[in-house]
Write a protein that binds this DNA or RNA. Structure first.
Length: 880
RNA sequence: GCCGGAGUGGCGGAAUUGGCAGACGCGCGGGAUUCAAAAUCCCGUCCUGGCAACAGGGUGAGGGUUCGAGUCCCUCCUCCGGCACCA
C-alpha cells in the first residue's frame, strides 16, 4: 500500500519502488528536459569529485588553522547493512564538519569499523565461512552505503578493529596494562618494574605479589555457561536466564578469567566528569554506575572464635540498632563459624545459592530467604550478642560480603527481620512525630536522617554528627575505619570466543603467566578448520594446537592464552588510531596526538552511555598516566542522537515489517533528501518516527531550491538570476537566515536551521528577480546539509571550484533589524489590538500609540490604566 | 520501588528562555494550470460560534507566583529511558 502510494507520488521526483520506471524514464516520456533536478547523477558526480580531489583530507599538525576533531561512534559492520538510525548521527557530525571547514578549521572527520563481534562468528559456526571473509564483505557493503550519503570523511584514515595492523596496538595497550600497577599514593598507573616489593619473599611469593597488582590480572569469576550450546555467553546473550539463541538454560560457573582493574580509576572517572561537556543525564548515568558511597568498615568479634567479621555500612550511626548480622553465602568464614546443628541447613542453602543465576537472586526472588549459622557476633559498641545469618540478599562482590543488620532503619533488613521474627530496635528518631511513633512500635522502617536515641552516650546527636563521631570513636579503638565503596566492579575482559583479539600472553609450564615481547606483536589469530565450540569451556582457539604451543627463547615450552578480548577492546581507543592510522612503529605519533586531541565533538547512540564511554575513559586515563596521551579526558563534547522509530511509531524491526532501507530512500529521493529529512525530523536527541511523506517534503524543498537557480526547460541558469542588488526585505531575510543557520548549527538545532532555509527559499521563489549574491549565500549555508545539490548549484552559478572550503557567509547585524515592528497591545493580558511602530521608537511613544488605539480605548471602558508595561519589540500590556 | 527525560493542532515539531502559542514540514480542503492526470503555483487549515468583522476557549490534570506562564513553584496522571537487594 505504502510503496504503491510513494511510487506514484515520486514518479516525477525519483525512480520510486517500481525501479527503472523512475525519474528519467517517466519524466523523459513526458518531455522532461536537461534541467530538472537529477539528484542521482549529481550525487554520483560530486562524490567522485570529492574522492578524486581528496577534498576532505585532514592535514596533520597544520598550525595555521585551529583544529576540530569531530567523531562518530563507528559501527559494527552487520550483514543487515546500514539502517536509518546510523545516518542520523553521521549526518549531524557531517554538517558540523563541513560547517567548521567553511569556518576555517582544520577538520578531522574519520570513519571506521568496530568489526570484531559475534554475528560473524555465529555465521562461521553455521556455515564454516571464515569470520574475516564475512566481516570484509559486510564492511564493503556498509562502506558503499555510507559513501552514497556523501559524508565528508577522510577515507584515507579508515580503520577496522579486525585488521592485524590495528589490533597490534590493541594488544599493545593490553600488554601495557598487564605490565603496570596502580600506585595508590600517586593515584596513577606505573610500570610494574617500579612496583616496590617487600623484602624477604620467596620467588613464588614475589611473583604472586606482583601478579596480584597488575592492571590486567586473572581471577576465578562466575561466567554464563550454557551446557546445551557448549559455550560461554556474554551477559547480553542471556535473556531471562536462558540463552538468547535457542532458549537453553544458562548456569553460573566459576572460570579463570582476565580482569582489568578499572575500579582503581573509579575516583578519577567520577571526578573528571566535571571536565567534560556532556548532558547532565549521561553524566548521571555514569555517576550512578560507578556508585560511590562513603561510610565505615566496622569490626565485629565472633563469639568463641579468633576470627572477626568486617562489615561495610553507610550508617555507622545506627550501630546500636544492629540486631543481627548477615553474611553472603560465599563468605569465606561461613564454613568456619557454622555450628554442627546448623551445618546441614547452611550447606544446602549455600549450594542452592551457588546454582542460582544473578537473575534468580534479584528479579525473580523478591522474597527474602536465609538461614541461621548458629554463631553469634559481638556488637563493638554495646557488646550485645547478635545472631549471624546467611542470606543471598548480601552480595559477596560488594563491600566486605557481610553486613550488620539494622532492621529499624534499613528496608531490606526490615523485611528480613520481619520474616524471620528477629528483633527490631529503633535508634533514630524521625523528625515527624507520627513516623516516630510507628517506628517505635516496629511498624515502620525509617531510613532518613534524624536524631539518635537508644545509643548510649551518643543520644541526641544528629545523623550527620553521629556518623562522624562514631567513625572516629571506632578508629581510636581499632574497631573500624572510614571506607569508600563503589558499585563499579573490575572489568571482565576475556571471552571464550574465536573472533576477537588474542591476548599477548603465554602460560608457562610452572603455571605462571608472562606477556610476550612487543616485538612479537601483532599476535595474529590462527585460522581454524571449523569454528564450533569445543563443548568444554575451552575457547575455540585451543583447537589451534600449532599456534597454542610455543617455545620460548630459553627453549622452554609454553601455551598461549586462548581467551580473546571482548568487542569493547577495539572501540576503547580507535579515536587515537585515526590520528595516525598507518603508523607501523607505534599506535600514534605523540605530536599528532598533541595536535588533534581531545575529540571536540562525539556523536553516537545513547546505548553506549555507560559501558563504551566508561571503558574508553578508563583506557585513556591509563594511557595518560604512562604519558602516551596529553589529555585527561578523550571526548570533550558528547551528544547522543535519539532513536528513529518506524512509520507506525514502533521500534524498527524485521518482524514488524517497519524497517526503512536507506538504500531505497537514496534511490528514490537522493542522499541530500535523506540527509535533510533525518535532520528535519526533530531535535537530534529526541526519539522520533519516520515518515516517507516527510522525506517528500524536504525533497520538494530541494526541487524548489533547484528551480531558483536552474530553468528546468532549458537547463540553463534561470533568467530570474541576475547581478542585481537585493531589495531591503530580501536582504533582511537573507541575513536573518545566515545568522539563524549558523547559530543553529553551533547548537545542533538542525531542524530549525532547515526551517529557516525553507522560509528564505519560499520567499525567493516568489521574486521575479533573484540576485545572484543572495543565491550564492543561500547555497553556501545549504551546503553542509545537502552538499551535492549545493556543489552543483555553486558550479552553475559560475564557480570553478568546490565550495567545501569557501568561507561561511557572515551576516550583517544592521541588515537584520526590521525598520518597523508590530507590537501586540494587551489589556489585562488579553490581546486587543496590534500597532506598528518604528523599530527605534521609545517607550513613551509606544505607550502613547498603544493607548490611542480605538480597540484599547473600548476595552478600557473608561477606566484609567493603573500601569502600562512596555516590552520593547515585544508587546504592551495595559493594566487596569 | 528509586533516579532521569518528556507530554503543545489530524501528524512530525517551533516558540529569542517569563512577553503575540502553533514557525517550518506533512496531511487535509478550495482554487489556478491541464483535454485529463501527475507535477507546479495561489488561498485556507488549533477548537467552538458566525457569511464575515469578531467573540470565547486552548500547551496532560489541578492549584500557585506574576501585569503577563507552554516556559517558574507545588500536587497528581501518562509515556519513554536507566538502575534494580550495592548495605
Amino acid at each position: 500500500m505504502i510503496s504503491e502510494r510513494v511510487g506514484g507520488r515520486v514518479a516525477c521526483g525519483g525512480s520510486g519502488r517500481r525501479g527503472s520506471r523512475g525519474l528519467r524514464k517517466v519524466a523523459g516520456s513526458m518531455g522532461m528536459t536537461e534541467g530538472t533536478y537529477d539528484f542521482g547523477q549529481i550525487e554520483r558526480k560530486w562524490q567522485a569529485y570529492w574522492d578524486e580531489h581528496k577534498s576532505f583530507k585532514a592535514t596533520d599538525c597544520d598550525a595555521s588553522k585551529p583544529k576540530y576533531y569531530v567523531l562518530d561512534m563507528f559501527p559494527y559492520p552487520s550483514g543487515q547493512g546500514l539502517h536509518v538510525g546510523h545516518p542520523e548521527g553521521y549526518t549531524a557530525t557531517d554538517i558540523v564538519a563541513r560547517y567548521k571547514r567553511m569556518k576555517g578549521f582544520n577538520v578531522l572527520h574519520p570513519f571506521g569499523w568496530d568489526a570484531f563481534g559475534l554475528p560473524a562468528e555465529q555465521h562461521a559456526i553455521a556455515t564454516g565461512t571464515h569470520p574475516e571473509e564475512t566481516t570484509n564483505k559486510n564492511i564493503a557493503n556498509m562502506k558503499r552505503q555510507t559513501k552514497a550519503l556523501g559524508f565528508s570523511y577522510d577515507w584515507d584514515r579508515e580503520v577496522a578493529t579486525t585488521d592485524p595492523e590495528y589490533y597490534h596496538w590493541t594488544q599493545w595497550i593490553v600488554l601495557k596494562l598487564f605490565n603496570s600497577y596502580f600506585d595508590e599514593e600517586l593515584q596513577k598507573a606505573r610500570p610494574i618494574e617500579e612496583l616496590p616489593v617487600p623484602d624477604g619473599l620467596s620467588a613464588q611469593e614475589r611473583r604472586r605479589y606482583i601478579d596480584d597488582r597488575r592492571l590486567a590480572y586473572q581471577a576465578d569469576v562466575p561466567v554464563n555457561w550454557c551446557p546445551a550450546l557448549g559455550t560461554v555467553l556474554a551477559n547480553e546473550e542471556v535473556v531471562g536466564g536462558v540463552s538468547e539463541r535457542g532458549g537453553h538454560p544458562v548456569i553460573r560457573k566459576p572460570m579463570r578469567q582476565w580482569m582489568l582493574r578499572i575500579t582503581k580509576y573509579a575516583e578519577r572517572l567520577l571526578d573528571d566528569l566535571k571536565e567534560v561537556d556532556w548532558s547532565e543525564s549521561i553524566k548521571k548515568l555514569q555517576v550512578d554506575w560507578i556508585g560511590r558511597s562513603v561510610g565505615a568498615e566496622v569490626c565485629f568479634r565472633i563469639d568463641g572464635y579468633e576470627d572477626n567479621i568486617w562489615v561495610f555500612t553507610t550508617r555507622p550511626d545506627t550501630l546500636f540498632g544492629a540486631t543481627y548480622m548477615v553474611m553472603a553465602p560465599e563468605h569465606p568464614l561461613v564454613g568456619t563459624i557454622v555450628t554442627e546443628a546448623q551445618k546441614q541447613a547452611v550447606e544446602a542453602y549455600c549450594e542452592a545459592a551457588a546454582r542460582k543465576s544473578d537473575l534468580d537472586r534479584t528479579d525473580l526472588a523478591k522474597d527474602k530467604t536465609g538461614v541461621f549459622t548458629g554463631a553469634y557476633a559481638i556488637n563493638p559498641v554495646n557488646n550485645e550478642r547478635i545472631p549471624i545469618w546467611i542470606s543471598d540478599y548480601v552480595l559477596i562482590s560488594y563491600g566486605t560480603g557481610a553486613i550488620m543488620a539494622v532492621p529499624a532503619h534499613d528496608d531490606r533488613d526490615f523485611e528480613f527481620a520481619t520474616k524471620f521474627a528477629l528483633p527490631i530496635v529503633q535508634v533514630v528518631q524521625p523528625p515527624s512525630a507520627e513516623d516516630a511513633e510507628r517506628v517505635a512500635r516496629g511498624e515502620l522502617c525509617f531510613t532518613g536522617d534524624g536524631t539518635a536515641i537508644h545509643s548510649g552516650p551518643f543520644d541526641g546527636l544528629t545523623t550527620a554528627e553521629f556518623k562522624e563521631k562514631i567513625t572516629a570513636w571506632l578508629a581510636e579503638r581499632g574497631l573500624g575505619k572510614k571506607a569508600i565503596n563503589y558499585k563499579l566492579r573490575d572489568w571482565l575482559f576475556s571471552r571464550q570466543r574465536y573472533w576477537g583479539e588474542p591476548f599477548p600472553i603465554v602460560h608457562l609450564a610452572d603455571g605462571t603467566v608472562t606477556g610476550i615481547s612487543e616485538r612479537e606483536l601483532p599476535l595474529r589469530l590462527p585460522d581454524l578448520d571449523d569454528y564450533k565450540p569445543l563443548g568444554t569451556a575451552e575457547p575455540p582457539l585451543a583447537k589451534a594446537t600449532d599456534w597454542v604451543n610455543v617455545t620460548l627463547p630459553d627453549g622452554s615450552a609454553a601455551r598461549r592464552e586462548t581467551n580473546t578480548m571482548p568487542q569493547w577492546a577495539g572501540s576503547c581507543w580507535y579515536y587515537l588510531r585515526y590520528l595516525d592510522p598507518r603508523n607501523a612503529e607505534r599506535g600514534w605519533d605523540p605530536a599528532k596526538e598533541k595536535y588533534w586531541m581531545p575529540v571536540d565533538l562525539y556523536i553516537g547512540g545513547a546505548e553506549h552511555a555507560v559501558l563504551h564511554l566508561l571503558y574508553s575513559r578508563f583506557w585513556h586515563k591509563f594511557l595518560y598516566d604512562l604519558g602516551y596521551v596529553s589529555t585527561k579526558e578523550p571526548f570533550k563534547k558528547l551528544v547522543n542522537q535519539g532513536m528513529i522509530l518506524g512509520e507506525d511509531g514502533q521500534k524498527m524491526s524485521k518482524s514488524r515489517g517497519n524497517v526503512v532501507n536507506p538504500d531505497q530512500v537514496v534511490t528514490d529521493y537522493g542522499a541530500d533528501s535523506m540527509r535533510l529529512y533525518e535532520m528535519f525530523m526533530g531535535p537530534l536527541e529526541a526519539m522520533k518516527p519516520w515518515s516517507m511523506n516527510g522525506v517528500q517534503g524536504v525533497h520538494r524543498f530541494l526541487q524548489k531550491t533547484w528551480r531558483l537557480v536552474v530553468e528546468e526547460e532549458t537547463g540553463r541558469l534561470s533568467p530570474a538570476v541576475q547581478d542585481a542588488p537585493a531589495d531591503e526585505e530580501t536582504l533582511r531575510l537573507l541575513h536573518q537566515t545566515l545568522k539563524k543557520v549558523g547559530d543553529d548549527v553551533e547548537s545542533f538545532g538542525f531542524n530549525t536551521a532547515i526551517s529557516a532555509m525553507m522560509i528564505l527559499v519560499n520567499h525567493l521563489g516568489r521574486q521575479q528577480v533573484r540576485p545572484k549574491s543572495v543565491l550564492e549565500s543561500l547555497v553556501l549555508v545549504l551546503a553542509p546539509f545537502a552538499p551535492h545539490i549545493a556543489e552543483e548549484l555553486w558550479q552553475r552559478l559560475g564557480h570553478a571550484n568546490s565550495l567545501a572550503h569557501e568561507p561561511w557567509p557572515s551576516y550583517d547585524k544592521g541588515l537584520i533589524r526590521e525598520r518597523q515592528i508590530e507590537l501586540a497591545v494587551q489589556v489585562n493580558g488579553k490581546i486587543r489590538d496590534r500597532i506598528v511602530v518604528a523599530a527605534e521608537a521609545d517607550e513613551e511613544a509606544i505607550q502613547a500609540e498603544a493607548l490611542s488605539s480605538d480597540k484599547v480605548v473600548e476595552a478600557l471602558a473608561g477606566k484609567t490604566p493603573r500601569k502600562v508595561i512596555v516590552i520593547k519589540s515585544r508587546l504592551v500590556n495595559v493594566v487596569v
